[in-house]
C-alpha cells in the first residue's frame, strides 16, 4: 500500500545490516538507504519530488526467495543511481567507496540467488543443467518479480 514518506522506519528496514552503524551512516549521507531509494525510485535525499499526495509503495516480500530478489533489486537500483552520479563526480572518493560496498553486497546476493533459484545472467553456471531458459522470465505474470 502507499504510505507517506514520513512513515519510513529504518529500524524495520529489510536491508538493515544488524550490528552495523548503517542507520547513522545513512542519516549522515546525501544518499538514502538502498531500500528507501529503491522504493522511491530516487536515491538522492534532496532530489525527491512526490506527485500530489502520492509517495511510493511499501513492498512486502512473502518468503525467502521474494526477500532475496527484492534485496537484489534494491542493491542493483542503488548501484545504478550511484553509477549516474559518479559519471559526473568521478573524483568523489567517499561515494566511490560506498559504491564498491554496495557492489560487493549485490554480488554476494546475486550468487546466493542464482545458486538457489537459477541464473540472473548467462554466465552464472552453478547448476548442472542449462537453466538460463527456465521460466519465469521477468515479464511473466506467474513468477519472476511477481513475488514482490
Amino acid at each position: 500500500m502507499l504510505f507517506d514518506n514520513t512513515d519510513f522506519d529504518y529500524e524495520i528496514s529489510f536491508l538493515k545490516i544488524p550490528g552495523s552503524d548503517f542507520n547513522k551512516e545513512i542519516r549522515d549521507s546525501k544518499f538514502l538507504s538502498p531500500e528507501e531509494g529503491f522504493l522511491r525510485g530516487n536515491l538522492m535525499k534532496d532530489e525527491y519530488v512526490p506527485y500530489k499526495n502520492l509517495t511510493y509503495f511499501k513492498l512486502t516480500p512473502q518468503n525467502e526467495q521474494e526477500t532475496l530478489l527484492l534485496k537484489l533489486m534494491a542493491y542493483s537500483f542503488t548501484i545504478n543511481d550511484l553509477n549516474l552520479y559518479l559519471d559526473l563526480n568521478p573524483k568523489d572518493q567517499q561515494t566511490y567507496e560506498l559504491f564498491k560496498k554496495y557492489v560487493k553486497e549485490k554480488n554476494r546476493l546475486e550468487e546466493m540467488y542464482s545458486e538457489k533459484y537459477g541464473p540472473m545472467t548467462i554466465t552464472e553456471t552453478q547448476g548442472s543443467n542449462y537453466n538460463w531458459i527456465m521460466d519465469p522470465w521477468p515479464w511473466d505474470n506467474t513468477g519472476g518479480s511477481m513475488y514482490v
Binding site: M120, I122, N141
Partner: peptide, 14 residues
C-alpha cells in the same frame, strides 16, 4: 550489452 533476468522494479498486476 548483457541481460539481467529481473526487472528494474517489480511488476505484478493482478
Amino acid at each position: 550489452f548483457k541481460y539481467v533476468k529481473h526487472l528494474n522494479y517489480p511488476i505484478n498486476i493482478k
